[in-house]
Amino acid sequence: MSIQHFRVALIPFFAAFCLPVFAHPETLVKVKDAEDQLGARVGYIELDLNSGKILESFRPEERFPMMSTFKVLLCGAVLSRVDAGQEQLGRRIHYSQNDLVEYSPVTEKHLTDGMTVRELCSAAITMSDNTAANLLLTTIGGPKELTAFLHNMGDHVTRLDRWEPELNEAIPNDERDTTMPAAMATTLRKLLTGELLTLASRQQLIDWMEADKVAGPLLRSALPAGWFIADKSGAGERGSRGIIAALGPDGKPSRIVVIYTTGSQATMDERNRQIAEIGASLIKHW
């Protein structure tokens, strides 16, 4: 067993022997301040990774656009098919120029040779490549099948209805392509620590998230040296922004954090800054 596999296998073990965790309302004060600064709703939840206990939450059962955070769930569904012998990570998928959609920095470079399922998941999570996500959605049967996968996990809230990039439209009061912070946090925890996926697939999923290259201005910008984070960000229309993450000190994750916002007129930089400040408060009061 590799060191990384050992780390993920012992996530519940280490967490069980940690000192009790206590909620700190100071972080919620910052979440509410972010709402004021952005002029928009902000949803927040913080779960203990081992027990699933909610440590703090704000608007945990209000719907927010998922945006690209759905790509972690998508690759979880792909990995479940791999575990069941219905898919192979090494299978190569070929596609054409007509398949390319807006923001496809990886797939646009491989029109000639195609990409493997493993490479597509890596591109979808680490670079948020939209064509990679659409190609992977095709392998599982489309958005409705991802929703069905989530329902089978016990998540009857999260739903995907459309493809990239239309799913980022974020129309107010439109339930399409949305989740709730509580539902997303619980589902992410199941994917990373539950028995739904094999140990190898859980490790692969967290490795992809740990290698995320496009979430630097968010929670990662607030992390002290030595902290662990595996995350996936999302951005959408109407001032929408979000991030889902597993993080913790001492090089291992111990909490799940989900943050979503929508309806702001603020710039992307300002949305990023507010999420980073929430992260800084979380870490300060850990």
Results as ranks from 00 to 15, higher is better:
His24Ala: 09
His24Ser: 11
Pro25Ile: 15
Val29Cys: 13
Lys30Arg: 08
Val31Asn: 02
Glu35Gly: 10
Asp36Glu: 14
Asp36Asn: 14
Gln37His: 08
Leu38Ser: 09
Leu38Cys: 11
Leu38Asp: 07
Gly39Pro: 06
Gly39Thr: 09
Gly39Cys: 10
Ala40Leu: 04
Arg41Met: 15
Val42Asp: 00
Ile45His: 09
Ile45Leu: 13
Glu46Trp: 11
Asp48Phe: 03
Leu49Lys: 11
Asn50Arg: 11
Asn50Leu: 10
Ser51Tyr: 11
Lys53Ala: 13
Lys53Gln: 13
Ile54His: 14
Ile54Lys: 13
Leu55Asn: 13
Leu55Cys: 14
Glu56Leu: 07
Glu56Gly: 04
Ser57Tyr: 08
Phe58Arg: 12
Glu62Asn: 04
Glu62Thr: 03
Glu62His: 04
Glu62Ile: 09
Arg63His: 07
Pro65Phe: 03
Met66Tyr: 12
Met66Ala: 13
Met67Phe: 14
Met67Val: 14
Lys71Ile: 00
Lys71Asn: 00
Val72Gly: 03
Cys75Ser: 07
Cys75Thr: 09
Gly76Met: 05
Gly76Thr: 09
Ala77Asp: 07
Val78Glu: 05
Leu79Lys: 00
Val82Arg: 07
Asp83Met: 07
Gln86Glu: 05
Glu87Tyr: 09
Glu87Arg: 03
Gln88Met: 11
Leu89Lys: 04
Leu89Phe: 06
Gly90Phe: 06
Arg91Gln: 14
Arg91Thr: 11
Ile93Thr: 10
Ile93Gln: 14
His94Met: 05
His94Tyr: 06
Gln97Ala: 10
Asn98Lys: 09
Asn98Arg: 09
Asp99Ser: 11
Leu100Trp: 08
Leu100Asn: 13
Val101Arg: 07
Val101His: 04
Glu102Arg: 05
Tyr103His: 06
Pro105Ser: 08
Val106Met: 14
Thr107Ser: 11
Glu108Tyr: 15
Lys109Gln: 15
Lys109Asp: 09
His110Leu: 09
His110Gly: 13
Leu111Cys: 09
Thr112Trp: 15
Asp113His: 04
Gly114Ile: 02
Met115Val: 04
Met115Asp: 02
Thr116Phe: 08
Thr116Met: 10
Ser122Gln: 10
Ala123Ser: 09
Ala124Asp: 01
Ala124Val: 13
Ala124Thr: 11
Ile125Phe: 02
Ile125Lys: 00
Thr126Tyr: 05
Met127Arg: 12
Met127Asn: 14
Ser128Ile: 01
Asn130Ala: 03
Asn130Gln: 12
Thr131Gln: 03
Thr131Tyr: 05
Ala132Ser: 11
Ala133Ile: 01
Ala133Asn: 02
Asn134Ala: 08
Leu135Tyr: 08
Leu136Asp: 00
Leu136His: 01
Leu136Met: 07
Leu137Gln: 04
Thr138Val: 12
Thr139Val: 11
Gly141Met: 04
Gly141Trp: 07
Gly142Cys: 04
Pro143Tyr: 06
Pro143Leu: 10
Lys144Phe: 05
Glu145Lys: 15
Thr147Gly: 06
Thr147Met: 06
Thr147Asp: 05
Thr147His: 05
Ala148Phe: 04
Phe149Ser: 14
Leu150Thr: 14
Leu150Arg: 00
His151Ala: 05
His151Arg: 06
His151Trp: 06
His151Ser: 06
Met153Gly: 04
Met153Arg: 04
Gly154Tyr: 04
Gly154Gln: 10
His156Gly: 11
Val157Gln: 09
Thr158Tyr: 02
Arg159Ser: 10
Arg159Gln: 10
Trp163Ala: 09
Glu164Gln: 00
Glu164Arg: 00
Glu164Tyr: 03
Pro165Gln: 06
Leu167Phe: 07
Asn168Pro: 01
Asn168His: 06
Ala170Trp: 05
Asn173Phe: 09
Asp174Arg: 03
Glu175Gln: 07
Arg176Ser: 07
Arg176Asp: 05
Arg176Gly: 05
Thr178Tyr: 02
Thr179Lys: 00
Met180His: 14
Met180Phe: 15
Ala182Pro: 08
Ala183Pro: 08
Met184Thr: 03
Ala185Cys: 14
Ala185Lys: 01
Thr187Tyr: 05
Arg189Phe: 15
Lys190Trp: 06
Lys190Arg: 14
Leu191Trp: 08
Leu191Gln: 06
Leu191Thr: 08
Leu192Arg: 00
Thr193Met: 15
Gly194Phe: 11
Gly194Glu: 07
Glu195Gly: 11
Glu195Ile: 03
Leu197Phe: 14
Thr198Asn: 05
Thr198Met: 10
Leu199Ile: 11
Leu199Val: 04
Leu199Gln: 07
Ser201Glu: 02
Ser201Tyr: 15
Gln203Thr: 03
Gln204Asp: 09
Leu205Glu: 02
Ile206Thr: 08
Asp207Arg: 08
Asp207Thr: 06
Asp207Asn: 10
Asp207Ala: 06
Trp208Ser: 03
Met209His: 00
Ala211Cys: 14
Asp212Asn: 15
Asp212Cys: 14
Asp212His: 09
Val214His: 13
Val214Gly: 14
Ala215Lys: 15
Gly216Ser: 08
Gly216Phe: 14
Gly216Val: 09
Gly216Met: 14
Pro217Tyr: 13
Leu218Phe: 09
Leu219Ile: 10
Ser221Asn: 06
Ser221Val: 08
Ala222His: 07
Leu223His: 03
Leu223Ile: 15
Pro224Gln: 05
Ala225Val: 13
Ala225Phe: 05
Ala225Thr: 06
Gly226Gln: 05
Trp227Met: 03
Phe228Arg: 14
Phe228Gln: 15
Asp231Gly: 11
Ser233Thr: 06
Ser233Val: 02
Ser233Ile: 00
Gly234Ala: 10
Gly234Glu: 01
Ala235Lys: 02
Ala235Tyr: 03
Gly236Ser: 08
Glu237Arg: 13
Glu237Met: 12
Arg238Cys: 09
Arg238Ile: 14
Arg241Asp: 02
Arg241Glu: 04
Arg241Lys: 10
Ala245Lys: 00
Leu247Asn: 01
Gly248Ala: 05
Pro249Phe: 07
Lys252Pro: 09
Pro253Ile: 14
Pro253Arg: 07
Ser254Met: 07
Arg255Leu: 09
Ile256Ser: 02
Val258Asn: 02
Ile259Arg: 00
Ile259Phe: 11
Tyr260Val: 08
Thr262His: 05
Thr262Ala: 06
Thr262Cys: 08
Thr262Tyr: 05
Gly263Asp: 09
Gly263Ala: 08
Gly263Arg: 10
Ser264Asp: 04
Thr267Cys: 08
Thr267Trp: 07
Met268Tyr: 09
Met268Val: 11
Asp269Met: 05
Glu270Ala: 04
Arg271Gln: 09
Arg271Tyr: 10
Ala276Asp: 05
Glu277Asp: 06
Ile278Thr: 05
Ala280Ile: 05
Leu282Ser: 14
Ile283Tyr: 13
Ile283Ala: 12
Ile283Thr: 14
Ile283Lys: 15
Lys284Met: 06
Lys284Ser: 12
Lys284Ile: 15
His285Gln: 15
Trp286Ala: 02
